[in-house]
C-alpha cells in the first residue's frame, strides 16, 4: 500500500511533529510558567495581592484561549511572518502553537500552584521568606508532581494542535494526514497517521504520569 518514499515521508513527518510539539511546549512554558506564577501570586489571597494585574492578565489569557486554534493561527499570520519569515511549515506552526498554548499553560500552572497548602506558604512567611523565595522554594517545588502531570496534558494538547495546523500549511504528521489522506483520498495513510498520533500521545501521557508519580514524596 505504501509507495516508494512514503516511509521516508512519514519518518520526516514523525520527527517534525515531535520537534514542533517539544519546541513549542518548551516556549509555551517559558512564557506560561511565569504567567501562572503571577496569576497565583497576585490573586487576592496570594502572597502579593494586586487586583489590577491579576484581572488584566486573566482577561488577556481568556481572550486568547477563547479564539479557536485554527482561527488564531490564521489571525496571527502577520506576526508569525514577522517572527520567523514564513507562514507555512513547522517553524511557522511553532509560533502559532506557542501563542495558543502559553495561556493554556498559564492556567494549568495556576491550578497546580493553587494546590499548594496555604498553611505551608504561611509557615514560610513566618520564617521571613520573601515572595521570590516563596515562589522558587515553596510554590514550584511543592507543586512539582502536579506541574509534571500538567505538562503531560499540555504536551498532548499541543500535539493535537500541531496536527490541526496541517490544514493551514503546517508540517508534521497532521499535514501528511490531510494532504494525502484527505485531499488525495488515501484513507489508509490517514489511519496510519492517526494511529501514530495516538501512540505518541500515549507515550507522552504515560511518561509524564510516571515521572510525576516517581517525583511525588507524599505517597
Amino acid at each position: 500500500m505504501f509507495k516508494e518514499g512514503m516511509l521516508a515521508l512519514v519518518g520526516a513527518g514523525f520527527w517534525e511533529t515531535i520537534y514542533m510539539t517539544l519546541v513549542s511546549t518548551f516556549f509555551a512554558y517559558l512564557i506560561g510558567l511565569p504567567l501562572g506564577l503571577i496569576l497565583v501570586v497576585t490573586d487576592k489571597d496570594g502572597i502579593r495581592p494586586m487586583a489590577l494585574v491579576h484581572q488584566v492578565l486573566g482577561v488577556l489569557i481568556n481572550i486568547i484561549r477563547s479564539v479557536p486554534f485554527l482561527i488564531l493561527l490564521v489571525a496571527i499570520m502577520p506576526f508569525t511572518k514577522a517572527v520567523v519569515g514564513t507562514v507555512i511549515g513547522a517553524k511557522a506552526t511553532i509560533v502559532g502553537l506557542l501563542v495558543a498554548a502559553a495561556p493554556f499553560v498559564a492556567r494549568m500552572v495556576e491550578s497546580s500552584l493553587k494546590e499548594v497548602e496555604k498553611g505551608v506558604i504561611e509557615a514560610a512567611q513566618s520564617m521571613g521568606a520573601s515572595p521570590l523565595q516563596i515562589m522558587l522554594k515553596v510554590l514550584l517545588p511543592e507543586a512539582k508532581p502536579s506541574l509534571l502531570v500538567g505538562s503531560a496534558i499540555a504536551i498532548t494538547t499541543i500535539l493535537g494542535y500541531s496536527a490541526m495546523a496541517g490544514f493551514v500549511g503546517g508540517g508534521g504528521l497532521g499535514a501528511i494526514a490531510i494532504n494525502y489522506g484527505y485531499y488525495r483520498g488515501q484513507t489508509d495513510i490517514m489511519y496510519i497517521m492517526v494511529i501514530l498520533l495516538v501512540i505518541i500521545v500515549q507515550v507522552f501521557q504515560e511518561a509524564g504520569m510516571r515521572i510525576s508519580r516517581h517525583s511525588d514524596k507524599r505517597l
Partner: peptide, 16 residues
C-alpha cells in the same frame, strides 16, 4: 521574623 519560630496544628511541613 527570623527571630520568631512558629509551629502549627497541621505542621505545615514541605511535603517534597
Amino acid at each position: 521574623r527570623r527571630s520568631m519560630g512558629m509551629i502549627f496544628q497541621q505542621f505545615h511541613l514541605l511535603m517534597q
